[in-house]
Amino acid sequence: MTAVAAERVEALKLLHQRHAPWLRVRLARRCADPDVVDDTIQDTFVAVWRDARRYDASKGEAAAWIWTIAIRRLISQLRRTGAEPQAAELDEAHLITQSAEEVVLVGVEHGDLGTAIARLSPDLRAAIQATVLDGLTVREASRLLGVPEGTVKTRVMRAKAQLRGFLA
C-alpha cells in the first residue's frame, strides 16, 4: 500500500492481481450482474489509487480496507441502477475451480444456514455477513455498517442466538 500511495503503477497492478479475484467472487455473491461487479471492481481500484495514502495499517488488513471500499461501491452501483442484489447462479464447472473457502461459503449461502440467515432481520443479517462471512473485524464492520462497535457485537450475538433457534 505504501508503494501505491507513492503512485507506483506497478504496485497497483500487483495489488489488483492479488485482490481482484477474491473481490469478484465475494461481490458476485451479492450481485448476479457481472457488468456491475466489473464496474465495482474498477471503481474500487480507482479509489484505492486515489486514497492509498489514507490507508492505516494499524486499523486493519489492507484486504479488509479494500473490501470495505468494494462493498460500498457495489451498494452505490446498485442504488444508481435501482437493481436488487442477487446471488449469482453457480454451475458445477465453477465449483471445481473454487478454493475450499469459496466452496464452504457457497454451501453456507445456499444450504440450511443460508436459509436461516435469510430469515434474519436486515440489521442482524448485515452484521453476521460482515463479521462472519466476510471476515471483517468488529471495528471494520462498524465502519462499514455505520454503527458503533458495541451495536455490531450485540447484533452478532442476537443473530447467532436466532440462527441457533432457526437451525434447532
Rank of each mutant, 00 (worst) to 15 (best):
D56S: 04
L23W: 05
R125F: 10
A70H: 04
E149Y: 03
Q129T: 15
R155H: 09
D33R: 03
W67P: 00
E149G: 09
D51P: 03
Y55F: 12
D35E: 12
A11D: 03
W22Y: 11
T154P: 00
A88E: 15
R79W: 07
L136I: 08
Y55E: 03
R143W: 08
R143M: 07
M1V: 04
A62M: 08
Q98R: 13
D134F: 06
R8G: 00
E7F: 04
V152C: 05
A141I: 00
T81R: 09
V48R: 01
V108P: 01
R125H: 15
E61H: 08
A57D: 10
Q86V: 13
E101M: 13
A141N: 02
A11G: 04
R155F: 03
K153Q: 15
Q77R: 15
R18P: 00
D134V: 13
R18N: 06
R50A: 07
E109M: 13
H94Y: 13
I71Y: 12
E140L: 04
S142C: 05
R53F: 01
L78D: 07
E61Q: 11
V4S: 01
H94V: 14
R79P: 05
A20R: 01
D91A: 01
R50T: 09
A3F: 02
T97F: 13
K160R: 13
A118E: 13
A159T: 10
I75Q: 15
Q162F: 04
M157G: 09
V25E: 15
P85I: 07
K59A: 07
I128H: 06
R158G: 02
I69P: 04
V156C: 09
V147W: 01
L74M: 14
V104W: 14
K13M: 06
R26D: 11
D38A: 14
K13T: 10
A28Q: 13
V108D: 05
L90E: 13
E149S: 11
I41T: 04
A87T: 15
V103I: 14
S121R: 13
E101Y: 15
I69T: 08
R72A: 08
M1G: 06
R79T: 15
I128Q: 02
V138Q: 05
W49M: 05
R30Q: 10
W65K: 01
G111A: 03
W22R: 15
A159S: 10
D56L: 01
L133E: 11
D112K: 15
R119Q: 13
G146K: 08
A64L: 01
A28K: 06
D43R: 13
R73K: 14
R139E: 12
L105H: 10
K59M: 06
E61P: 02
E7V: 05
T97V: 15
Q129I: 14
E102C: 10
P21Q: 12
L78K: 08
T137W: 00
R164P: 07
